[in-house]
């Protein structure tokens, strides 16, 4: 059952990362990878919120391991950073890594705090 819930979450999360990335790039033409930053920050917010909720293992598998896990990515982030530094965009490479870290951690903490406050 857990395997099935993880699979369902991932089958939604991975295509949503691709579609969000496309949509962000289509509206915002920039060498900075805003699309990947967007999915990583949203996924961190949702997972932070889900972690604080008194959720069942089933919800954790579906939303946390499956959906948020597949929506967010480290492989894309590291490859983008490599490519940006190769193209001479050192500032963008450094900014990509540091903004992802700060915004991701902030989003996770925010999600956690919001849920904790609501659920008491």
């Amino acid at each position: 059952m857990t395997v099935l819930l993880i699979a369902i979450g991932a089958a939604l999360g991975a295509p949503l990362r691709y579609l969000t990335d496309r949509a962000v790039q289509a509206r915002h033409d920039s060498p900075f990878p805003w699309g990947t930053l967007t999915v990583n920050v949203i996924g961190s917010l949702v997972l932070g919120a889900a972690t604080a909720a008194p959720a069942s293992p089933a919800v954790a598998a579906l939303v946390g391991t499956g959906f948020c896990g597949a929506l967010t990515t480290w492989s894309t982030l590291s490859y983008e950073t490599l490519r940006l530094s190769r193209e001479g965009a050192r500032f963008h490479a450094l900014a990509n890594m540091s903004v992802s870290l700060v915004a991701g951690l902030g989003a996770a903490a925010l999600g956690y705090t919001l849920t904790s406050t609501v659920t008491g």
């Binding site: 896990g69 480290w74 989003a107």
Partner: peptide, 10 residues
């Protein structure tokens, strides 16, 4: 993309 995860990391 599905194997690696940023949300679990933070």
């Amino acid at each position: 993309g599905g194997y690696t995860t940023f949300s679990t990391y933070v």
